[in-house]
Design a protein around this nucleic acid. Structure first.
Length: 434
DNA sequence: TCTGGGGTCCTTCAGCTC
DNA sequence: TCTGGAGCTGAAGGACCC
Protein backbone atom coordinates (compact mmCIF):
# COMPACT_ATOMS: atom_id res chain seq x y z
CA UNK A 1 0.00 0.00 0.00
CA UNK A 2 1.53 3.27 -1.02
CA UNK A 3 0.97 6.53 0.75
CA UNK A 4 -0.37 8.03 -2.44
CA UNK A 5 -3.30 5.68 -2.30
CA UNK A 6 -4.42 7.07 1.01
CA UNK A 7 -6.85 9.95 1.38
CA UNK A 8 -5.24 11.32 4.51
CA UNK A 9 -7.62 12.84 6.99
CA UNK A 10 -10.43 12.91 4.48
CA UNK A 11 -13.86 11.82 5.57
CA UNK A 12 -15.00 8.78 3.68
CA UNK A 13 -17.93 9.11 1.42
CA UNK A 14 -20.44 6.36 0.80
CA UNK A 15 -18.58 5.47 -2.37
CA UNK A 16 -15.31 5.15 -0.50
CA UNK A 17 -16.48 2.07 1.28
CA UNK A 18 -19.24 0.38 -0.61
CA UNK A 19 -21.81 1.27 -3.17
CA UNK A 20 -24.56 -1.07 -2.04
CA UNK A 21 -24.38 -0.97 1.72
CA UNK A 22 -27.61 0.13 3.41
CA UNK A 23 -25.91 1.43 6.53
CA UNK A 24 -22.74 3.09 5.33
CA UNK A 25 -22.09 6.30 7.17
CA UNK A 26 -20.93 9.36 5.34
CA UNK A 27 -22.96 11.29 7.86
CA UNK A 28 -22.05 12.37 11.39
CA UNK A 29 -24.61 9.95 12.79
CA UNK A 30 -22.34 8.40 15.39
CA UNK A 31 -24.25 9.10 18.63
CA UNK A 32 -23.68 6.24 21.05
CA UNK A 33 -20.83 4.90 18.92
CA UNK A 34 -18.06 4.96 21.50
CA UNK A 35 -16.19 1.84 20.43
CA UNK A 36 -13.54 1.82 17.71
CA UNK A 37 -12.01 -1.32 16.24
CA UNK A 38 -8.78 -0.48 14.46
CA UNK A 39 -7.28 -3.13 12.20
CA UNK A 40 -4.06 -2.75 10.19
CA UNK A 41 -4.40 -3.70 6.52
CA UNK A 42 -2.35 -6.83 5.63
CA UNK A 43 -0.17 -5.84 8.57
CA UNK A 44 2.94 -8.03 8.20
CA UNK A 45 3.05 -7.53 4.45
CA UNK A 46 2.55 -3.76 4.81
CA UNK A 47 5.46 -3.59 7.28
CA UNK A 48 7.70 -5.36 4.76
CA UNK A 49 6.64 -3.10 1.90
CA UNK A 50 7.71 0.01 3.83
CA UNK A 51 11.32 -0.95 3.12
CA UNK A 52 10.60 -2.59 -0.26
CA UNK A 53 8.66 0.04 -2.25
CA UNK A 54 9.61 -1.86 -5.42
CA UNK A 55 7.15 -4.59 -4.34
CA UNK A 56 4.15 -2.26 -3.90
CA UNK A 57 1.30 -3.34 -6.17
CA UNK A 58 2.67 -6.88 -6.55
CA UNK A 59 1.37 -10.14 -5.06
CA UNK A 60 3.45 -10.57 -1.90
CA UNK A 61 3.01 -13.04 0.93
CA UNK A 62 4.78 -13.41 4.26
CA UNK A 63 5.33 -16.83 5.75
CA UNK A 64 7.60 -19.76 6.32
CA UNK A 65 8.94 -21.13 3.07
CA UNK A 66 9.65 -24.65 4.33
CA UNK A 67 7.86 -27.77 3.18
CA UNK A 68 5.23 -27.23 5.88
CA UNK A 69 4.98 -23.44 5.90
CA UNK A 70 1.73 -21.52 5.76
CA UNK A 71 0.85 -17.99 4.67
CA UNK A 72 0.96 -15.55 7.58
CA UNK A 73 -0.08 -12.45 5.63
CA UNK A 74 -0.92 -11.60 2.03
CA UNK A 75 -1.16 -8.28 0.19
CA UNK A 76 -4.50 -7.52 -1.43
CA UNK A 77 -2.89 -8.17 -4.83
CA UNK A 78 -2.08 -11.72 -3.67
CA UNK A 79 -5.58 -12.17 -2.27
CA UNK A 80 -7.00 -11.62 -5.74
CA UNK A 81 -5.54 -15.03 -6.60
CA UNK A 82 -7.49 -16.63 -3.76
CA UNK A 83 -4.54 -16.63 -1.38
CA UNK A 84 -5.37 -16.06 2.27
CA UNK A 85 -3.66 -16.40 5.64
CA UNK A 86 -3.20 -19.92 7.10
CA UNK A 87 -3.15 -21.38 3.59
CA UNK A 88 -0.34 -23.89 2.97
CA UNK A 89 2.51 -22.18 1.16
CA UNK A 90 2.60 -24.89 -1.49
CA UNK A 91 -1.00 -24.17 -2.42
CA UNK A 92 -0.43 -20.39 -2.48
CA UNK A 93 2.40 -20.88 -4.98
CA UNK A 94 0.20 -23.03 -7.16
CA UNK A 95 -2.52 -20.36 -7.17
CA UNK A 96 -0.01 -17.64 -8.09
CA UNK A 97 3.36 -18.93 -9.33
CA UNK A 98 4.68 -15.35 -9.55
CA UNK A 99 3.92 -14.60 -5.90
CA UNK A 100 6.82 -13.06 -3.95
CA UNK A 101 7.48 -14.82 -0.64
CA UNK A 102 9.11 -12.93 2.24
CA UNK A 103 10.20 -14.54 5.52
CA UNK A 104 8.53 -13.13 8.66
CA UNK A 105 10.38 -10.54 10.72
CA UNK A 106 8.54 -10.44 14.02
CA UNK A 107 10.94 -7.99 15.61
CA UNK A 108 9.95 -5.45 12.94
CA UNK A 109 6.21 -6.13 13.38
CA UNK A 110 6.50 -5.78 17.15
CA UNK A 111 8.26 -2.44 16.75
CA UNK A 112 5.66 -1.07 14.31
CA UNK A 113 2.87 -2.39 16.52
CA UNK A 114 4.30 -0.55 19.55
CA UNK A 115 4.28 2.67 17.53
CA UNK A 116 0.68 2.16 16.45
CA UNK A 117 -0.50 1.31 19.97
CA UNK A 118 1.22 4.46 21.24
CA UNK A 119 -0.93 6.49 18.82
CA UNK A 120 -4.05 4.78 20.20
CA UNK A 121 -3.01 5.58 23.79
CA UNK A 122 -2.56 9.21 22.82
CA UNK A 123 -6.28 9.21 22.02
CA UNK A 124 -7.58 7.24 25.00
CA UNK A 125 -6.17 5.17 27.87
CA UNK A 126 -8.85 2.58 27.19
CA UNK A 127 -7.03 0.46 24.60
CA UNK A 128 -7.49 -3.32 24.40
CA UNK A 129 -5.01 -4.86 21.94
CA UNK A 130 -6.24 -8.12 20.38
CA UNK A 131 -3.00 -8.89 18.59
CA UNK A 132 -0.05 -7.01 17.10
CA UNK A 133 -2.26 -5.47 14.42
CA UNK A 134 -5.65 -4.70 15.95
CA UNK A 135 -7.20 -3.15 19.02
CA UNK A 136 -10.44 -1.89 20.51
CA UNK A 137 -10.60 1.69 21.77
CA UNK A 138 -13.26 3.21 24.02
CA UNK A 139 -13.43 6.87 23.04
CA UNK A 140 -16.43 7.91 25.16
CA UNK A 141 -14.18 10.21 27.20
CA UNK A 142 -12.04 11.37 24.30
CA UNK A 143 -15.07 12.63 22.36
CA UNK A 144 -15.36 15.68 24.62
CA UNK A 145 -11.78 16.57 23.79
CA UNK A 146 -11.41 15.40 20.19
CA UNK A 147 -14.88 15.52 18.68
CA UNK A 148 -17.18 12.87 17.17
CA UNK A 149 -16.05 9.25 17.02
CA UNK A 150 -15.92 9.33 13.22
CA UNK A 151 -13.49 12.26 13.34
CA UNK A 152 -11.36 10.47 15.91
CA UNK A 153 -11.27 7.42 13.62
CA UNK A 154 -10.09 9.56 10.70
CA UNK A 155 -7.47 11.26 12.86
CA UNK A 156 -6.10 7.88 13.94
CA UNK A 157 -5.97 6.64 10.33
CA UNK A 158 -4.08 9.75 9.26
CA UNK A 159 -1.58 9.50 12.11
CA UNK A 160 -0.90 5.81 11.47
CA UNK A 161 -0.09 6.61 7.82
CA UNK A 162 2.03 9.64 8.71
CA UNK A 163 3.98 8.09 11.57
CA UNK A 164 4.19 4.42 10.63
CA UNK A 165 3.74 4.42 6.85
CA UNK A 166 0.98 1.80 6.77
CA UNK A 167 -2.78 1.98 6.41
CA UNK A 168 -5.51 0.77 8.71
CA UNK A 169 -9.27 0.41 8.75
CA UNK A 170 -11.55 1.57 11.57
CA UNK A 171 -14.99 0.31 12.53
CA UNK A 172 -17.08 2.64 14.71
CA UNK A 173 -20.08 1.26 16.58
CA UNK A 174 -21.88 1.07 19.93
CA UNK A 175 -20.34 -2.35 20.77
CA UNK A 176 -17.11 -4.24 20.24
CA UNK A 177 -18.66 -6.94 18.10
CA UNK A 178 -20.34 -4.51 15.70
CA UNK A 179 -17.22 -2.33 15.53
CA UNK A 180 -15.20 -5.36 14.50
CA UNK A 181 -17.70 -6.35 11.83
CA UNK A 182 -17.68 -2.76 10.57
CA UNK A 183 -13.91 -2.68 10.15
CA UNK A 184 -14.02 -6.02 8.32
CA UNK A 185 -16.64 -4.63 5.94
CA UNK A 186 -14.71 -1.41 5.27
CA UNK A 187 -11.32 -3.03 4.51
CA UNK A 188 -8.86 -2.03 3.20
CA UNK A 189 -8.02 1.57 4.11
CA UNK A 190 -11.55 2.54 5.09
CA UNK A 191 -13.79 3.65 7.91
CA UNK A 192 -17.35 2.62 8.61
CA UNK A 193 -19.78 3.90 11.24
CA UNK A 194 -22.74 1.72 12.23
CA UNK A 195 -25.14 3.88 14.26
CA UNK A 196 -27.19 2.32 17.06
CA UNK A 197 -30.46 2.43 15.16
CA UNK A 198 -29.00 0.61 12.16
CA UNK A 199 -27.26 -2.25 13.96
CA UNK A 200 -29.99 -4.83 13.20
CA UNK A 201 -30.24 -3.80 9.55
CA UNK A 202 -26.47 -4.16 9.25
CA UNK A 203 -26.24 -7.42 11.15
CA UNK A 204 -29.11 -9.69 10.15
CA UNK A 205 -28.29 -10.24 6.44
CA UNK A 206 -24.73 -11.37 7.28
CA UNK A 207 -23.82 -15.09 7.11
CA UNK A 208 -23.68 -16.95 10.45
CA UNK A 209 -19.92 -17.30 10.03
CA UNK A 210 -19.66 -13.55 10.70
CA UNK A 211 -20.62 -14.10 14.33
CA UNK A 212 -17.69 -13.96 16.71
CA UNK A 213 -16.96 -17.47 17.91
CA UNK A 214 -18.44 -19.25 14.91
CA UNK A 215 -15.76 -21.32 13.21
CA UNK A 216 -16.03 -24.38 10.99
CA UNK A 217 -17.57 -26.73 13.56
CA UNK A 218 -20.14 -24.30 14.93
CA UNK A 219 -21.10 -23.19 11.42
CA UNK A 220 -21.75 -26.82 10.47
CA UNK A 221 -23.94 -27.25 13.58
CA UNK A 222 -25.92 -24.11 12.73
CA UNK A 223 -26.27 -25.16 9.10
CA UNK A 224 -27.74 -28.47 10.26
CA UNK A 225 -30.45 -26.40 11.99
CA UNK A 226 -31.09 -24.62 8.68
CA UNK A 227 -29.60 -21.33 9.92
CA UNK A 228 -27.73 -19.42 7.23
CA UNK A 229 -27.79 -15.79 8.37
CA UNK A 230 -27.38 -13.89 11.60
CA UNK A 231 -31.07 -13.01 11.32
CA UNK A 232 -31.92 -16.73 11.26
CA UNK A 233 -29.97 -17.19 14.50
CA UNK A 234 -31.73 -14.22 16.09
CA UNK A 235 -35.15 -15.73 15.34
CA UNK A 236 -34.27 -19.17 16.73
CA UNK A 237 -35.26 -20.00 20.34
CA UNK A 238 -32.17 -19.72 22.53
CA UNK A 239 -32.86 -23.21 23.97
CA UNK A 240 -32.53 -24.69 20.49
CA UNK A 241 -29.14 -22.98 20.07
CA UNK A 242 -27.98 -24.21 23.49
CA UNK A 243 -28.90 -27.81 22.63
CA UNK A 244 -26.98 -27.57 19.35
CA UNK A 245 -23.78 -25.81 20.45
CA UNK A 246 -23.72 -25.72 24.26
CA UNK A 247 -24.74 -23.33 27.03
CA UNK A 248 -22.10 -20.63 26.73
CA UNK A 249 -21.90 -20.51 22.94
CA UNK A 250 -25.67 -20.74 22.50
CA UNK A 251 -26.54 -17.80 24.74
CA UNK A 252 -23.54 -15.82 23.51
CA UNK A 253 -24.48 -16.17 19.83
CA UNK A 254 -28.14 -15.38 20.52
CA UNK A 255 -27.17 -12.13 22.24
CA UNK A 256 -24.70 -11.20 19.49
CA UNK A 257 -27.33 -11.89 16.84
CA UNK A 258 -29.46 -9.16 18.40
CA UNK A 259 -26.49 -6.81 18.52
CA UNK A 260 -26.19 -7.11 22.29
CA UNK A 261 -22.58 -7.19 23.44
CA UNK A 262 -22.07 -5.64 26.88
CA UNK A 263 -18.35 -6.46 27.06
CA UNK A 264 -16.40 -3.30 27.90
CA UNK A 265 -13.02 -2.40 26.46
CA UNK A 266 -10.60 -3.90 28.97
CA UNK A 267 -6.99 -2.85 29.37
CA UNK A 268 -5.25 -6.24 29.68
CA UNK A 269 -3.52 -7.06 32.96
CA UNK A 270 -1.02 -9.54 31.56
CA UNK A 271 -0.58 -12.84 29.83
CA UNK A 272 -2.25 -15.99 31.14
CA UNK A 273 0.11 -18.47 29.54
CA UNK A 274 3.39 -18.55 27.68
CA UNK A 275 4.21 -21.34 25.26
CA UNK A 276 6.34 -22.50 22.37
CA UNK A 277 5.81 -25.26 19.88
CA UNK A 278 7.58 -26.57 16.83
CA UNK A 279 6.48 -28.59 13.85
CA UNK A 280 9.27 -30.89 12.67
CA UNK A 281 10.36 -30.64 9.02
CA UNK A 282 9.29 -34.28 8.76
CA UNK A 283 7.52 -36.63 11.17
CA UNK A 284 9.93 -38.28 13.59
CA UNK A 285 9.86 -41.36 15.81
CA UNK A 286 13.16 -41.03 17.70
CA UNK A 287 12.54 -40.26 21.42
CA UNK A 288 16.00 -38.70 21.72
CA UNK A 289 15.16 -36.10 19.10
CA UNK A 290 11.85 -35.38 20.80
CA UNK A 291 13.66 -34.92 24.15
CA UNK A 292 16.05 -32.45 22.52
CA UNK A 293 13.18 -30.47 21.06
CA UNK A 294 11.37 -30.43 24.42
CA UNK A 295 14.59 -29.11 25.98
CA UNK A 296 14.88 -26.37 23.36
CA UNK A 297 11.24 -25.33 23.83
CA UNK A 298 11.55 -25.43 27.63
CA UNK A 299 14.54 -23.09 27.40
CA UNK A 300 12.52 -20.68 25.29
CA UNK A 301 9.49 -20.72 27.57
CA UNK A 302 11.47 -20.37 30.82
CA UNK A 303 13.58 -17.58 29.33
CA UNK A 304 10.41 -15.65 28.48
CA UNK A 305 9.07 -16.25 32.00
CA UNK A 306 12.26 -14.83 33.55
CA UNK A 307 12.29 -11.92 31.12
CA UNK A 308 8.75 -10.97 32.18
CA UNK A 309 9.34 -11.62 35.88
CA UNK A 310 6.77 -14.43 35.99
CA UNK A 311 6.66 -17.96 37.33
CA UNK A 312 4.38 -20.78 36.25
CA UNK A 313 2.73 -23.48 38.34
CA UNK A 314 1.35 -25.64 35.54
CA UNK A 315 3.41 -27.08 32.71
CA UNK A 316 1.57 -28.44 29.67
CA UNK A 317 3.06 -30.75 27.07
CA UNK A 318 1.43 -30.93 23.65
CA UNK A 319 2.04 -33.69 21.12
CA UNK A 320 0.63 -33.83 17.61
CA UNK A 321 0.91 -37.12 15.74
CA UNK A 322 1.42 -37.72 12.03
CA UNK A 323 -2.35 -38.06 11.50
CA UNK A 324 -2.83 -34.59 13.07
CA UNK A 325 -4.54 -35.89 16.21
CA UNK A 326 -3.33 -33.85 19.15
CA UNK A 327 -3.07 -34.64 22.84
CA UNK A 328 -1.92 -32.64 25.84
CA UNK A 329 -0.77 -33.60 29.31
CA UNK A 330 -0.23 -31.22 32.21
CA UNK A 331 1.18 -31.21 35.71
CA UNK A 332 0.74 -28.63 38.47
CA UNK A 333 3.87 -28.03 40.53
CA UNK A 334 4.16 -27.38 44.27
CA UNK A 335 5.39 -23.87 43.58
CA UNK A 336 5.85 -21.66 40.56
CA UNK A 337 8.99 -21.95 38.47
CA UNK A 338 10.90 -19.99 35.87
CA UNK A 339 13.79 -22.44 35.73
CA UNK A 340 14.42 -24.06 32.36
CA UNK A 341 15.66 -27.23 34.01
CA UNK A 342 12.40 -27.67 35.97
CA UNK A 343 10.20 -26.88 33.00
CA UNK A 344 12.13 -29.39 30.93
CA UNK A 345 12.10 -32.08 33.64
CA UNK A 346 8.32 -31.75 33.98
CA UNK A 347 7.63 -31.70 30.23
CA UNK A 348 9.95 -34.63 29.63
CA UNK A 349 8.30 -36.63 32.44
CA UNK A 350 4.93 -35.98 30.86
CA UNK A 351 6.24 -37.13 27.49
CA UNK A 352 7.89 -40.27 28.87
CA UNK A 353 4.70 -41.15 30.77
CA UNK A 354 2.88 -41.39 27.43
CA UNK A 355 4.91 -44.51 26.71
CA UNK A 356 5.04 -43.81 23.00
CA UNK A 357 6.86 -46.57 21.20
CA UNK A 358 8.12 -45.28 17.87
CA UNK A 359 4.96 -43.22 17.33
CA UNK A 360 5.36 -40.82 14.41
CA UNK A 361 5.29 -37.29 15.82
CA UNK A 362 4.64 -34.13 13.86
CA UNK A 363 4.84 -31.45 16.56
CA UNK A 364 5.73 -30.97 20.20
CA UNK A 365 4.91 -27.97 22.36
CA UNK A 366 5.57 -26.75 25.89
CA UNK A 367 3.30 -24.25 27.62
CA UNK A 368 3.48 -22.57 31.02
CA UNK A 369 0.13 -21.75 32.66
CA UNK A 370 -0.98 -20.47 36.04
CA UNK A 371 1.31 -17.45 35.80
CA UNK A 372 2.02 -15.18 38.75
CA UNK A 373 4.56 -12.47 39.48
CA UNK A 374 7.86 -14.06 40.52
CA UNK A 375 8.18 -11.63 43.45
CA UNK A 376 4.74 -12.58 44.84
CA UNK A 377 5.22 -16.32 44.49
CA UNK A 378 6.47 -18.39 47.45
CA UNK A 379 9.33 -20.66 46.53
CA UNK A 380 9.56 -24.02 48.31
CA UNK A 381 13.17 -25.02 48.79
CA UNK A 382 14.13 -28.66 48.91
CA UNK A 383 16.57 -29.88 51.53
CA UNK A 384 19.19 -30.83 48.97
CA UNK A 385 18.79 -27.64 46.96
CA UNK A 386 21.75 -25.25 47.12
CA UNK A 387 20.99 -21.64 48.07
CA UNK A 388 22.53 -20.40 44.87
CA UNK A 389 21.38 -22.78 42.18
CA UNK A 390 19.94 -23.20 38.73
CA UNK A 391 17.82 -20.07 38.87
CA UNK A 392 20.87 -17.87 39.41
CA UNK A 393 22.82 -19.80 36.79
CA UNK A 394 20.07 -19.31 34.23
CA UNK A 395 19.80 -15.61 35.06
CA UNK A 396 23.51 -15.40 34.29
CA UNK A 397 22.84 -17.17 30.99
CA UNK A 398 20.11 -14.63 30.23
CA UNK A 399 22.61 -11.82 30.78
CA UNK A 400 25.14 -13.50 28.52
CA UNK A 401 22.51 -14.00 25.83
CA UNK A 402 21.51 -10.36 26.05
CA UNK A 403 25.13 -9.35 25.56
CA UNK A 404 26.38 -11.89 23.03
CA UNK A 405 23.17 -12.88 21.27
CA UNK A 406 20.65 -15.68 21.55
CA UNK A 407 22.23 -19.12 21.66
CA UNK A 408 25.54 -17.80 22.95
CA UNK A 409 25.18 -20.03 26.00
CA UNK A 410 22.96 -23.09 26.03
CA UNK A 411 22.78 -26.69 27.21
CA UNK A 412 25.42 -28.94 25.70
CA UNK A 413 22.70 -31.24 24.38
CA UNK A 414 21.46 -28.48 22.11
CA UNK A 415 24.82 -27.83 20.51
CA UNK A 416 25.09 -29.00 16.91
CA UNK A 417 27.01 -32.25 17.00
CA UNK A 418 27.14 -32.51 13.26
CA UNK A 419 24.38 -35.07 13.23
CA UNK A 420 22.34 -35.35 10.10
CA UNK A 421 18.97 -35.34 11.85
CA UNK A 422 17.96 -32.23 9.97
CA UNK A 423 17.18 -30.14 13.05
CA UNK A 424 20.66 -28.85 13.48
CA UNK A 425 21.83 -26.98 16.49
CA UNK A 426 22.49 -23.43 17.40
CA UNK A 427 25.60 -21.31 17.21
CA UNK A 428 28.24 -22.78 19.49
CA UNK A 429 30.86 -20.23 20.44
CA UNK A 430 29.97 -16.88 21.94
CA UNK A 431 31.06 -13.99 19.85
CA UNK A 432 33.18 -11.33 21.49
CA UNK A 433 31.45 -8.01 22.08
CA UNK A 434 32.14 -5.35 19.49
C1' DT B 1 -5.17 -29.25 -0.03
C1' DC B 2 -3.12 -30.56 3.85
C1' DT B 3 -2.98 -27.88 7.47
C1' DG B 4 2.25 -22.64 11.65
C1' DG B 5 2.57 -20.61 15.99
C1' DG B 6 0.88 -18.04 19.83
C1' DG B 7 -2.79 -17.53 22.50
C1' DT B 8 -7.88 -17.70 25.10
C1' DC B 9 -12.03 -19.74 26.60
C1' DC B 10 -15.30 -23.44 27.31
C1' DT B 11 -16.87 -28.17 28.37
C1' DT B 12 -16.45 -32.49 30.42
C1' DC B 13 -14.80 -35.58 33.66
C1' DA B 14 -12.47 -37.28 37.74
C1' DG B 15 -10.86 -36.83 42.33
C1' DC B 16 -11.05 -34.67 46.65
C1' DT B 17 -13.20 -32.51 50.74
C1' DC B 18 -16.94 -31.31 53.58
C1' DT C 1 -18.80 -45.87 59.92
C1' DC C 2 -20.82 -45.48 55.51
C1' DT C 3 -23.00 -42.95 51.70
C1' DG C 4 -24.58 -39.37 48.57
C1' DG C 5 -24.58 -34.66 47.02
C1' DA C 6 -22.46 -30.11 46.42
C1' DG C 7 -18.65 -27.49 45.36
C1' DC C 8 -14.04 -26.92 44.07
C1' DT C 9 -9.85 -27.87 41.44
C1' DG C 10 -7.01 -30.03 38.11
C1' DA C 11 -6.60 -32.30 33.80
C1' DA C 12 -7.64 -33.04 29.03
C1' DG C 13 -9.40 -31.82 24.78
C1' DG C 14 -11.88 -29.00 21.48
C1' DA C 15 -12.92 -24.78 19.16
C1' DC C 16 -11.76 -20.45 18.03
C1' DC C 17 -9.02 -16.13 17.06
C1' DC C 18 -5.21 -13.51 14.71
Amino acid sequence: MSRSQITRGARLTQADVSTDDPVIDGARDDDGCNILHVDMDAFYASCELRSRPDLVGKPVIVGGDGSRGVVTAATYEARRYGIHSAMPMSRAKRLCPAVIVLPPNFALYTEVSAGVMAIFRDVTPYVEPLSLDEAFLDVSGARRRLGPSADIADMIRARVVDEQGITCTVGVAPTKFIAKLASTRAKPDGRLVVPTDRVITFLHPLPVGSLWGVGDKTEQALTRLGLATVGDVAHTPVDTLIRAIGQAAGTHLYELAWGRDPRPVVVPEGEKSIGAEETFPRDIDDPELVHREILRLSERVASRLRHQGLVSRTIVLKVRFADFTTISRSRTLRSGTDISREVYATARDLYDALGLERARIRLVGVRAEGLTEADDSPRYMFLDEPEIGWREAEQAVDKASARFGKGAVQPARLLDTGSSDGFGGAPVAPRPPR
